[in-house]
């Protein structure tokens, strides 16, 4: 027990360094989920639309990104593709955000598609009967209702992005995970830094869950 306490004491100067990894983790999750949301919306519209080629593109895209491990996609984006194209000095943060964004787009498109399908068909008809154009109808009438239905699922996607982002440590992005490893190696002490990171991940996820619940209640005003 004393040894453990001493261990925490020993790494204490490095705890702020680990903690600041939260911002890197959150930045990746946030930027990736914005990319994912925009991309996912476009893909879902491709999926429900009547244009065959966009249809198959969106389905193929989703299939590939859901059918391969994220860590593999990350390695492909950071190591393999740059070498193939002869690009040096790829910024790991950029590679991480792009990979997560593209990956999240695939998952998000399925969530949004199911949300759109759950909107009463009559809403499309009412809007059409008023002469509202397709894009306006989607943007102003259908998507707001769809998003309200799928908000819990989208919040889960964001939380899972936050957690899964730990694998960016494999391409040397200094996020929460990576920092705990660095500190571990520095002191040759594993438990204290990793426990700090572990707790921080949990706190972040709990805070996000709480915020998600608040947002959901706010949006359900019209019920």
């Amino acid at each position: 027990m004393n040894g453990l306490i001493n261990g925490f004491k020993a790494i204490a100067p490095s705890i702020p360094y680990i903690m600041n990894g939260i911002w890197v983790t959150l930045a990746i999750a946030l930027v990736a989920s914005i990319i994912g949301l925009v991309l996912g919306t476009l893909l879902s519209l491709c999926k429900i639309g009547r244009i065959k080629i966009l249809n198959s593109f969106a389905r193929g895209y989703t299939s590939v990104f859901r059918g391969t491990p994220l860590i593999m996609q990350l390695a492909l984006a950071y190591f393999a593709i740059p070498q193939l194209l002869g690009i040096n000095n790829v910024d790991p943060f950029t590679a991480a955000v792009l990979t997560f964004g593209l990956n999240s787009g695939a998952y998000m498109s399925e969530i949004i598609r199911s949300g759109i399908n759950a909107v009463d068909k009559g809403q499309f008809e009412a809007a059409s009967a008023l002469g509202v154009r397709y894009w306006s109808m989607m943007k102003d009438i259908i998507l707001p209702q769809a998003i309200k239905n799928i908000l819990p699922a989208m919040m889960n996607e964001f939380i899972s992005l936050t957690k899964e982002s730990a694998i960016v440590s494999t391409i040397s992005v200094t996020d929460l995970m990576r920092r705990s490893q660095i500190v571990s190696a520095q002191y040759y002490l594993y438990f204290p830094p990793m426990f700090v990171a572990f707790i921080l991940y949990y706190i972040v996820v709990m805070v996000l869950t709480f915020l998600g619940g608040r947002l959901e209640r706010r949006l359900s005003r019209s019920d």
Partner: peptide, 10 residues
């Protein structure tokens, strides 16, 4: 329409 189809979020 029979079922009104008002926009519920407006």
């Amino acid at each position: 329409f029979q079922h009104f189809y008002l926009f519920p979020h407006k």
